[in-house]
Amino acid sequence: MSNRGVAEIRAVAAAVPDPELPVVTLGDLGILRDVRRTGDGGIEVVITPTYSGCPAMDAIRDDLRRALPGVSVVTVLSPPWTTDWITEEGRRKLREHGISPPGPTGGPVALTLAPACPRCGSLRTRLVSRYGSTACQAHFACRDCLEPFDHVKEI
């Protein structure tokens, strides 16, 4: 481990898929915050949860240790994760897999009134529930193609 560069290790960590949204990686989601060398020559990978109670955190830690044996994984809450950290590449992958990416945040409860349907592109969509299949998603349906879809909600 010690003879691999930090940049190389960062690339491996960033490429680990998210366990709940496996179409995107930890790097795409912006939950990989840092990879750094510690005083004793070890490597520390710093991650942050999307939501306080995100149940995927244990799986993410295990996946990182499997991909990078010997690293220590540190979890931080600050600064709090925001959907603004999801990369352009991450947004493209979400859309391609039928998940509507978040709009920009702003205001105490950011509301995208009409996220585009990721299947047909229609803006005639309706909110079914603020809460979807994971903590970070809301559930919508398209009025044109009638397809239900998940939307990563702005936070």
Binding site: P49, Y51, S52, G53, C54, Y131, S133, H139
Partner: peptide
């Protein structure tokens, strides 16, 4: 939908409780 919503609210609070 409310079942899922209430579970999500519960989960947020559990995460805050643990910290």
């Amino acid at each position: 939908e409310e079942d899922i919503a209430l579970a999500n609210l519960s989960l947020d609070l559990l995460g805050q409780a643990r910290s």
